[in-house]
Simulated scan of single mutants.
Amino acid sequence: MVWILIGITAYLVGSVVVWYGVMRQRNVDELVLSMLVAGVIFFMVAITMRWLRTEYGPFLTLFEVLLSNLFSLGFIYTLAYLFYPVVRSSALMVLPFFLFLGVWLLLVPAEAGQLPATYQTIWLWIHVGVGKVFLGICLVAVGLAAILLLRKLVRTDAWLASLPDDHELDAYVWRFIAIAFVFHSLMLLAGAVWAQDAWGRYWAWDSLETWAFITWLLLGLSLHLKLTYKIPQWSGWLLVMGIFAVAFITFFGVPFSSMGPHKGII
């Protein structure tokens, strides 16, 4: 648990630092990056320690899913933060989200589960892996969308005004959404192959599969509306945030409230 607490603390410090930088009009990018890297490392250690103790991957209980996503989301966001400077402003929204997941993690039971035989397949790893990449990339997009909406509401803030213009940030939002759509499609395909191997069917319309398909439809619909109908920028940003909300429910709610055969997983 100590590694988890240190990881959450790293995200907390990063969140405080980025808000301080905004309020004081100072560049704190390097310090925020160091806190992101520290958080990712500490959560990786926490996962490794638990994995060695339970002898299975972190994808069964809600505790394990939250823990693994604090690592995977942090890792993907850190890469985006490092290689795409335009993304860095979204830390104002993303780091508090990490804190929310961290507090939630501390409030759920930490006991280990019993790994079903149907989980012992390479297709589960592929399914989980591309699913985590999807959610991480979607988080980058929603962070930028949230910053753009904030700038629409607070037009007088000097820090928001100093960011790249709406057109440039909007373009990055939709690039990340397009990439997220690809990985979500791969997640569904890998999941179908795993389901066939585990239960003898590709699709059964259980709760998790249905919610995952709804998320995929919303992703495709949003891209179609953006490309075909040229919807207003602000409505597109709201749509992106709505997609992430549905994906959040799909990942962290449905698997633990339904009686589907694959509880946990992602």
Rank of each mutant, 00 (worst) to 15 (best):
A112V: 09
L107Y: 04
P116M: 11
M93S: 08
M49A: 10
T118K: 12
L60C: 08
I137M: 08
V37F: 09
I41E: 00
I41V: 12
P116S: 12
I41Y: 01
F63G: 02
L139W: 01
G102V: 02
G143V: 01
A112K: 08
G57M: 06
A46W: 02
A112S: 11
I122L: 15
L99C: 02
L62A: 08
G74F: 04
C138R: 02
V128M: 10
I137P: 00
T61V: 12
L95P: 06
G136A: 00
F43G: 01
P116F: 07
L139M: 10
G102H: 03
Y84Q: 05
F59H: 09
V45K: 00
Y81G: 03
L124I: 15
T48M: 07
Y84K: 07
I126N: 03
W51Y: 15
V108W: 07
V94A: 00
G131M: 09
S89H: 15
H127N: 14
A46S: 11
L115P: 05
A80P: 05
L101E: 04
H127I: 06
P58T: 08
N69K: 06
Y56D: 04
G113L: 11
W51E: 13
G74Q: 06
E55G: 05
Q114T: 14
V142W: 00
L92V: 15
F42C: 05
I137T: 02
A141Q: 01
S90A: 14
A46F: 05
V86I: 13
L62R: 07
F134T: 02
H127Y: 12
T118E: 10
A80M: 09
W104M: 14
Y77K: 03
L139E: 00
V142N: 04
F97H: 00
L52P: 03
A38R: 02
V40M: 06
V37R: 05
F43S: 02
V86S: 13
W125A: 12
I47S: 02
V40W: 03
L67T: 07
A117H: 11
F97R: 00
V140T: 02
V133L: 15
S72N: 11
T48S: 12
L73F: 04
L66H: 05
A38Q: 02
V45G: 00
